[in-house]
Simulated assay, not measured.
Amino acid sequence: MRVDLFDFELPQELIALRPVQPRDSARMLVAKGDAPFDDHTVRDLPQLLEPGDVLVFNDTRVIPAQLEGRRGDARIGATLHKRIDLRRWQAFIRNAKRVREGDQLVFGGGVTAIAEERHSDGSITLAFEGEEPVEVLLDRAGTMPLPPYIAGKRPTDERDYSDYQTMFAVEDGAVAAPTAALHFTPELIAALDERGIQRETITLHVGAGTFLPVKADDTDDHQMHSEWGRITADVAERLNAARAAGGRIIAVGTTSLRTLESAAWEDGTIQPFEADTNIFITPGYNFRAVDGLMTNFHLPKSTLMMLVSALMGRDRMMAAYAHAIAAKYRFYSYGDSSLLIP
């Protein structure tokens, strides 16, 4: 399938550089089947779902995975992408042509790493030196890895350390936020509980590959980066029971959706899961585990635009995005939301 089928023009002023406050006051475009689009706010969510439905959140926590430093006299930047083991991470390197295998990279706070191996996707394995846990080193030397469409417009600041973290974040390891869940507040959760909407959490450590553009002309030629995910046995059991009782599984974010679909059998049964996944969902995909998706508005020609088009149909999603642009919804990580029910 041609990648340019998922392209659209977005006015730059609609790219959100800060989230709205309070979080659940963000706007939400609702698309259900072929019904007309409805404009709501996120705090309307309890009334848009039915008792017995289940919202599935990603509990990953974003780590300060953006590093600035030097290789000799050359300035370099590193964005950690995926953990390999306790001391080694794959990283995308800015000015990577100045880095060779075996070089020592020096970051702030006395943090150093050895460039070990260059991979086919352009990333490099970094082995952090010393005895301190890498998490401690990152807290000292790293900054929040804001997406390029935000970081290119303004510097990271203290607000981002809370703004770019969901209220469900407990499992360290993501280098990008599961942004659909940024809209949730304790007040909204209380309203969902009162309505009888169930909640479950799973884990997918989002990698920096989520920001990379699709460079291929055809979707068949694009290689997804792998990310580590987990669904525990008790969560899988409760999700299957809820669906058997007539409840719908609503993924909060594409990261939750991809984890659920990676763990599902052909009959839709969700299995316990703890593995890497590089699932790439494009139109024609047969969804097995989810009945709907809450998600932000995505980049043109991105794998996530392809995913929502697979769920709702490409023409339907292009019409939804045209509606959102005309109505001046705010786009991307700090932007507004959508609720998609096929």
Rank of each mutant, 00 (worst) to 15 (best):
L80I: 01
H298W: 00
G207Y: 03
E237W: 14
D121M: 05
T185L: 12
A244V: 13
L260T: 01
V206S: 01
D4E: 13
G102Y: 13
T156H: 08
G207C: 09
A181I: 07
F331M: 06
W228C: 00
K215L: 09
R199S: 14
L126D: 01
F280W: 11
P19V: 03
A190W: 08
E101R: 07
T166Y: 03
G142C: 13
A174D: 00
D220F: 09
M312R: 12
S25C: 14
H40L: 11
Q104F: 10
I114N: 06
A244I: 04
M317W: 01
V214W: 02
L105K: 01
L299F: 08
G173A: 04
D267A: 07
V175D: 02
D103K: 07
V62K: 01
Y332L: 14
L307R: 00
A96M: 09
P342K: 05
H81G: 06
L307S: 00
G77L: 12
A233V: 07
L137H: 02
A322W: 12
P64C: 13
G253R: 01
L260N: 01
H183T: 11
T143V: 08
L48C: 11
R238D: 10
T143C: 12
P283A: 06
Q12R: 12
V42M: 14
V30A: 10
T269Y: 11
H119N: 15
V56G: 03
F107A: 02
Y164K: 07
A326M: 14
D38F: 13
L29A: 04
V42Y: 05
R18L: 10
Q66P: 09
G109W: 07
G292P: 01
H40R: 15
A65H: 05
H222F: 11
D85I: 05
D221G: 11
L80A: 06
A242E: 07
T232I: 04
S309V: 04
Q165G: 05
V308C: 08
F8W: 07
R94Q: 09
I84E: 07
L299W: 12
I189E: 14
E274T: 14
S338H: 03
G173W: 00
A96T: 11
P11R: 14
E50G: 13
A26Q: 02
A324Q: 08
Q47D: 15
V214S: 04
I76R: 01
L49I: 10
T259G: 11
P46H: 11
M294R: 07
E117C: 10
S337I: 10
D172Y: 09
G152I: 08
F168K: 09
R199H: 15
H119S: 08
R71S: 12
R118C: 04
R98C: 02
A177S: 15
T79R: 13
E158K: 11
E266S: 06
D103S: 08
R314Y: 01
L138G: 00
K153Q: 12
L10R: 03
